[in-house]
Amino acid sequence: MSAPSSSSLSIRDLHASIGDKPILKGLTLDIPKGEVHAIMGKNGAGKSTLAKIMAGHPDYTVTSGDVLLDGESILGIEPDVRARLGLFLAFQYPMEIPGVTIANFIRAALQARLPEGEELEATDYYAKLYSKMDALSVPRNFTSRSVNEGFSGGEKKRCEILQMAMLEPSYAVLDETDSGLDIDALKIVSAGVNALRGPNIGMLVITHYQRLLDYIVPDKVHVMSEGRIIHSGDKDLALKLEAEGYDWVEKEYSAGKSAV
């Protein structure tokens, strides 16, 4: 096991459970800044749970292991503090917040990142918001709609990517961002994500379809099963999984384990 880089999102032998039920069973993963990694796996492998645990969802308990953001542990700190440290989660099912407009919501989130007593400059804010919206082909009237309320699946996902673009995280976890998207929406959302790629961000894309990875081409692909990473490879691994399924990986993994 390599030492965690000081410039990475690093998950070290993480064990976590909900109630008495273990979900993560020794998961290790290192996402350096500047790279895009994908996690694939069957339903129930624990992929979405991993995302929530990293973000600090109160339903889950970490029993051992660590999550390091640029070398600092983020376990035991509040979800909002983790977010302000630079961790962003694009939700599979974004929540509706009735009566709170997207413009006010993002503004409040940016304001929360400023030192006490400092006010966000409104004109700069709107200029930035509009340019990011244009890049994501989001119509201007979006800003006055309540967050996710009455949104189509595609609108919800675009709204997530818009928030990511505005908040400029150093690490982003995209949980099943392709679910509920038709091919046109998938292209727009992927283009939005690709536009944010660069040396200052590390991304973890969670999906169980190869389809998304045609548009967001990952540097590495990991296979998750029963709460661990059981196999890693380059982008071609996704194609192989699509063609051959997951059974061979699982067999190899159990064979490898029994050989040890």
């Binding site: 973000a55 600090g56 969802h57 109160p58 509040e78 979800p79 909002d80 977010a83 302000r84 962003f88 989660l89 939700f91 974004p94 929540m95 509706e96 917040i97 919501f105 993002i106 409040a108 989130a109 929360a112 990142r113 928030q163 908040l167």
Partner: peptide
């Protein structure tokens, strides 16, 4: 809901 609060906290807002 707790999920709404978690969502907003994930964007950096305190509880």
């Amino acid at each position: 809901s707790a999920e709404q609060i978690f969502y907003m906290q994930q964007r950096g807002l305190s509880e």
